[in-house]
Computed example of a mutant assay.
Amino acid sequence: MTTPLTLTPGVGPDGAALLTVAGEIDMSNTGALAAALDRTPGPLVLDLTSVDYLDSAGLSVLFDHAERITLIANPLLTPVLTVSGLAGLATVHDGDPGLG
């Protein structure tokens, strides 16, 4: 069964591409996330503040784009991004999408 995931493209306050992600990111829906990231060229702010769960398959997709993404994470995800090493490769901000 596919886990609910919402991907909403947009533009951040600074004019950068923004992808707002909501729901759970797991192996059942990483294809949709990867496709959305692939469709957005250049630097990208990824707002994960409404993500409730992120598994290793989701992390793998994020690692593939680490050199060009800025992550905005909720307090639940911040330790996952840090322990996985992704926070050392991509810029990570806490909470507010306006920071991107």
Rank of each mutant, 00 (worst) to 15 (best):
residue 61 V to H: 15
residue 62 L to V: 05
residue 91 T to A: 11
residue 8 T to W: 09
residue 79 P to C: 03
residue 41 P to T: 06
residue 9 P to V: 13
residue 48 L to P: 00
residue 13 P to G: 12
residue 85 G to Q: 04
residue 53 Y to R: 06
residue 13 P to Q: 11
residue 87 A to T: 12
residue 21 V to S: 03
residue 77 L to I: 10
residue 84 S to E: 03
residue 75 P to L: 14
residue 53 Y to Q: 12
residue 55 D to K: 02
residue 32 A to H: 07
residue 79 P to E: 06
residue 58 G to S: 07
residue 29 N to R: 01
residue 42 G to T: 03
residue 55 D to Y: 01
residue 74 N to D: 05
residue 61 V to A: 09
residue 27 M to C: 11
residue 26 D to K: 02
residue 56 S to K: 10
residue 14 D to Y: 06
residue 56 S to L: 07
residue 94 D to R: 15
residue 82 T to Q: 10
residue 60 S to P: 07
residue 65 H to K: 08
residue 17 A to H: 13
residue 13 P to A: 11
residue 77 L to S: 14
residue 82 T to C: 12
residue 14 D to M: 11
residue 29 N to I: 01
residue 36 A to G: 13
residue 60 S to Y: 09
residue 85 G to K: 06
residue 24 E to V: 02
residue 12 G to P: 15
residue 81 L to C: 00
residue 21 V to Y: 06
residue 92 V to A: 05
residue 55 D to L: 00
residue 45 V to H: 11
residue 67 E to T: 04
residue 94 D to V: 12
residue 15 G to V: 01
residue 91 T to Q: 07
residue 59 L to S: 00
residue 79 P to H: 08
residue 96 D to G: 03
residue 69 I to H: 05
residue 54 L to F: 01
residue 79 P to G: 10
residue 88 G to D: 14
residue 92 V to H: 03
residue 62 L to K: 02
residue 31 G to V: 01
residue 33 L to W: 04
residue 68 R to N: 04
residue 48 L to E: 03
residue 18 L to T: 08
residue 14 D to F: 05
residue 92 V to W: 01
residue 22 A to C: 01
residue 95 G to P: 09
residue 23 G to L: 05
residue 93 H to L: 13
residue 64 D to C: 15
residue 86 L to N: 00
residue 24 E to H: 04
residue 58 G to K: 02
residue 7 L to P: 01
residue 34 A to M: 15
residue 59 L to Y: 00
residue 76 L to P: 13
residue 83 V to W: 05
residue 68 R to I: 03
residue 3 T to Q: 01
residue 18 L to Y: 12
residue 72 I to P: 14
residue 49 T to W: 14
residue 53 Y to D: 14
residue 36 A to W: 06
residue 84 S to T: 07
residue 76 L to H: 15
residue 49 T to R: 09
residue 15 G to Q: 02
residue 74 N to S: 08
residue 18 L to G: 07
residue 5 L to K: 00
residue 90 A to C: 12
residue 100 G to C: 00
residue 27 M to A: 11
residue 63 F to V: 05
